[in-house]
Design a protein around this nucleic acid. Structure first.
Length: 271
DNA sequence: AGAGGTACCTGGCAGC
DNA sequence: TGCTGCCAGGTACCTC
């Protein structure tokens, strides 16, 4: 489900209801997420004021004085803001309840998401410290990708989806960016020229910015914090379009497996 | 070090 | 209808 645009949209959606506000309590109905939810540590945030809400890669960071709460949406997670209480539904595993009554509700059918906590002064959480640069940041450049990829035999697609190389490029937007840059997804990362990495960096930025503007891509049941879907889907060029005509040249879009993930590309436009 | 596969989990859908 | 198998937006961790 959520790729970076969805996480960014979620972050912006909860920010006004959380930032500068006090946490009242947590209601944890199912602590069995990817890692066990640290129930006691989260409950200890009761009465704390949220100083900042932002994200690093696809991890949402909720910062208070004693520490930071980290939320990952996994494949199927979402956060909704409730200003009027609502009976919890299936897979509504965690509620963060604010003192003014707003509820940040975490729903995650597949439970690949997580709620974690990192105390202040303990340094950066180890899940964050090894992450690559932000794709929309100034460290993400053609020179960086070119240098980082030399000698690498893995496909360019799995390379750009590796969060240690660059964060936030998931399966949908990897396919779209490679199409936009005209690069075949199976091409070895170490054999892509500096010039083509320039095209790829621009394409990744462009597709992510456009998707953020549209509120993300909804394939099945993804909803933003207001419960509405994202609208980027109409603009996909290759993802999920196998057999359909390429929007640029009408050649049928192909689908292959790469690193256990479906990949879509135009055999004419991408070399 | 790098590459590839495995694991976590539920739900939706196609095919029978 | 109901069963079975396959697929799904992520990523840490394991082995080779």
């Amino acid at each position: 489900m959520p790729e970076l645009p969805e996480v960014e949209t979620t972050c912006r959606g909860i920010e006004p209801f959380v930032s500068g506000k006090k946490i009242a309590s947590f209601e944890i109905r199912n602590p069995g997420l990817r890692w066990p939810v640290p129930v006691a540590a989260l409950q200890a945030f009761a009465g704390e004021t949220v100083r900042k809400v932002d994200r690093r890669g696809k991890y949402i960071r909720i910062t208070c004085d004693p520490g930071m709460i980290l939320v990952h949406l996994g494949m199927s997670g979402s956060l909704r803001v409730l200003t009027v209480p609502e009976a919890p539904k299936k897979h509504d595993h965690v509620d963060m309840i604010m003192e003014d009554g707003a509820i940040i509700r975490f729903n995650d059918p597949r439970r690949f998401g997580c709620w974690l906590y990192q105390p202040s002064g303990a340094g950066e959480h180890e899940l964050l410290s090894a992450l690559g640069p932000e794709p929309l940041g100034e460290d993400f450049t053609a020179d960086y990708l070119f240098a980082r990829s030399r000698g690498r035999t893995q496909s360019i697609k799995t390379f750009i989806m590796d969060s240690h190389v660059v964060v936030g490029v998931g399966n949908i937007y990897a396919a779209e960016a490679l199409f936009m840059a005209g690069i075949h997804p199976k091409r070895a990362a170490g054999k892509v020229s500096r010039e083509r990495y320039g095209l790829l960096v621009a394409a990744i930025r462009k597709v992510l910015v456009a998707a953020i503007r549209q509120g993300g891509t909804t394939l099945r049941d993804y909803v933003n914090t207001d419960g509405k879907p994202g609208y980027f889907r109409q603009q996909l060029f290759v993802y999920g379009r196998q057999g359909e005509a390429c929007r640029a040249c009408s050649t049928p879009v192909k689908s292959i497996q790469l690193g256990q993930r479906s990949t879509f590309y135009c055999p004419a436009c991408q070399k």
